[in-house]
Amino acid sequence: MSAEPDLVGKLLEADGDLRRIAGELDHLPEAFPRRVNADPEQVEKGLAQLVLTVVELLRQLMERQALRRMDTGTLTDEQIERLGDTFMKLDQRMRELTEHFGLEEGDLNLNLGPLGDLL
């Protein structure tokens, strides 16, 4: 008898680019041993990834808030224009910075994981 659950039998349906979902495995708080990387370039890249992820998250949140307000009609035309202009420029700047550090969009994509369910 297998001492491990039958994982293959659990996959009901999968459609699309699974790498975008499988990548989350890296971000689960878990006890699996991890390699320690002390290469300075990698450390800098790791820090950049952290900082840019935070900034990107903030940007997405603010944008969502603004879109929601726009949807419910509680923004003036001037506000919409100003916000849109800011978000557009911020998005562009983020793409530049991400590229500068040799990162990809997918690298800035951390999930809330378990804490997401507390909200």
Binding site: H27, P29, E30, R64, L112, G116, L119
Partner: peptide
């Protein structure tokens, strides 16, 4: 039973920043 995990720092920050938006959305 657990292991201190660097990812928890990431997760913690995200919670702090996204709580309002996510609450509204939910």
């Amino acid at each position: 039973l657990s292991v201190a995990d660097v990812d928890l720092v990431y997760v913690g920050l995200r919670v702090l920043l996204s709580s309002v938006a996510t609450l509204e959305e939910q």
